[in-house]
């Protein structure tokens, strides 16, 4: 296994401890719950925004804790939702008088654990609400699935809700912001390789060197189809058409564009994709107001990328512009 691990079972705890160690003034790590929280939160009058999911998607979720972003996050084992207990502690410890908003990516494990934790916290009088993010267009919503998955669009929901909370908006108002972003954001990803959860030690699916998985999930779940690899522009074109064709996008729109690496793709390749994305947006009559090229929601060392489009308006642009800082900073 070409990985920097000690005991594979310690991978998540050691990673979380490292995040806190790198941000000693800002963050606190509680190993018993794999909780990363801001030391200066909760504060009176401000809604706390929290999240938690399986590990392996870094910088989501614990590394997205910081000013203007999440107030706290819990992570489970790689690709496994955190237990109810951890979710409950996350809510309880970050509960302010203004309340707590839990942002949940649409996976069954995440939903069940958070649902139980939210019920427990509500029973104790905590003002907590949750919201389900489902931006992935790859898997069609139908009676045969639990609906669309939540992927890189998660970043925009966090960013906007974090900004709204900083503005002193109420829990219901921050929840409305989450709904609005989720309604206007769409994502699809393509994988060129599998990934290896440290405890498993082997790839979670087989894919030949000349193959790609179109519409891959961030846990390696298959997407729309397996195909031969193509030139980057053709791959980007398919992602663009899937995403643009699904969302509420039309000529003249202002948009944010994200080209997100899945963990094993160099940033240079992401800019090759962005170059094409910018061209496609121009041709479609979309004005790119902000762009995001890098790793926001990954799948360990999976080679691949996703494209996200978010339709903007004055309110959302302000929220994307608002100051923020996260644990996984590069400046």
């Amino acid at each position: 296994m070409r990985k920097f691990v000690n005991n594979p079972n310690d991978f998540v705890p050691e990673m979380m401890a490292g995040v806190a160690a790198a941000n000693p003034n800002l963050l606190e790590h509680q190993p018993e719950f794999q909780l990363i929280k801001r030391k200066d939160r909760p504060v009176a009058g401000k809604v706390s925004v929290v999240q938690g999911s399986g590990s392996g998607h870094e910088p989501a979720h614990a590394m997205a804790v910081g000013p203007g972003m999440l107030d706290g996050a819990v992570q489970g084992a790689v690709f496994a939702a955190p237990p109810v207990d951890a979710c409950y502690e996350c809510i309880k410890q970050l509960a302010s008088d203004a309340g707590v908003l839990v942002l949940i990516n649409n996976y069954q494990g995440d939903r069940m654990n958070w649902d139980m934790a939210v019920e427990m916290a509500q029973a104790e009088g905590v003002n907590v609400k949750s919201f389900i993010i489902d931006d992935d267009v790859a898997v069609k919503d139908s009676s045969y699935t639990i609906g669309r998955r939540g992927v890189a669009g998660n970043f925009f929901v966090i960013k906007a809700c974090g900004a709204a909370a900083d503005l002193g908006k109420s829990l219901d108002e921050v929840l409305e912001v989450a709904k609005k972003v989720n309604g206007q954001v769409r994502t699809m990803g393509v994988a060129l390789s599998s990934c290896i959860p440290p405890v498993k030690g082997t790839p979670i699916f087989d894919i030949a060197v000349d193959e790609m998985e179109v519409g891959v999930g961030i846990h390696g779940e298959p997407g729309r189809r397996r195909d031969k690899t193509k030139p980057a522009n053709e791959i980007l074109d398919e992602m663009f058409e899937a995403v643009s064709g699904d969302g509420p996008f039309s000529k003249g729109d202002r948009v944010a564009v994200m080209v997100n690496g899945l963990g094993g793709t160099p940033i240079s390749e992401l800019y090759v994709l962005y170059n094409r994305a910018a061209r496609r947006c121009e041709e479609a009559g979309y004005t790119i107001v902000r762009n995001y090229v890098g790793e926001y929601c990954t799948s360990l060392e999976m080679a691949g990328a996703s494209l996200t489009l978010l339709k903007l308006d004055d309110e959302l642009e302000k929220m994307l512009d608002a100051p923020a800082e996260v644990a996984a900073r590069i400046f």
Binding site: G54, G76, A77, A80, A81, P82, P83, V84, D85, A86, Q108, G109, M112, N113, D115, M116
Partner: peptide, 14 residues
Amino acid sequence: ITKNVGGCSGPIWG
């Protein structure tokens, strides 16, 4: 189970 397992299995088996 509920406290420690997480994932899908924790809530279901718990």
